[in-house]
């Protein structure tokens, strides 16, 4: 294991700098964590970093032009921009209900994109 790097722990607001050794498959804590909770975080961050993705999708005929969305699960970091690209090219027709799946299996990640807001159809006067 050659690669040594610092991971800022985000479990609590202290933000310990945890020094780890990793080659992407193996993992070892060198030090820096003030509590045990940081170990699990550092492991997943070193071996398989993932992020919740929150963004928005274009809505046609809605009371709002956009609906906010999130990924159903954390997305592998390297796939974030592929998912964003698919999101950017998607449009949905109002009404949209909060919790409704808008994209299934986004960018072949197996992860869905789900509405986090209800957008009703625009009232026409």
């Amino acid at each position: 294991m050659t690669d040594e790097r610092n991971i800022t722990c985000i479990v609590c607001p202290i933000g310990c700098k945890i020094l780890v050794k990793t080659d992407g498959a193996q993992f070892e804590i060198v030090g820096g964590n003030k509590c045990k909770r940081g170990i699990e975080y550092a492991r997943s961050e070193a071996l398989d970093p993932r992020r919740m993705l929150t963004t928005s999708i274009l809505v046609n005929d809605g009371e709002w032009p956009l609906v906010s969305v999130k990924s159903s699960k954390p997305v592998p970091e390297e796939k974030l921009f592929s998912v964003l690209k698919e999101v950017g090219g998607t449009a949905v027709k109002a009404p949209v209900k909060s919790g409704q799946t808008i994209i299934k299996n986004a960018a072949n990640t197996g992860i869905d994109i789900v509405a986090t807001k209800t957008v009703l159809t625009k009232e026409v006067d």
Partner: peptide, 21 residues
């Protein structure tokens, strides 16, 4: 629209619109 709302209160991380709803 980002998440992180309601963790202390409900134990789950919600987005702003979800917390508001």
């Amino acid at each position: 629209i980002h998440d992180g709302f309601g963790v202390e209160e409900t134990g789950t991380s919600m987005t702003g619109p979800e917390y508001a709803e």
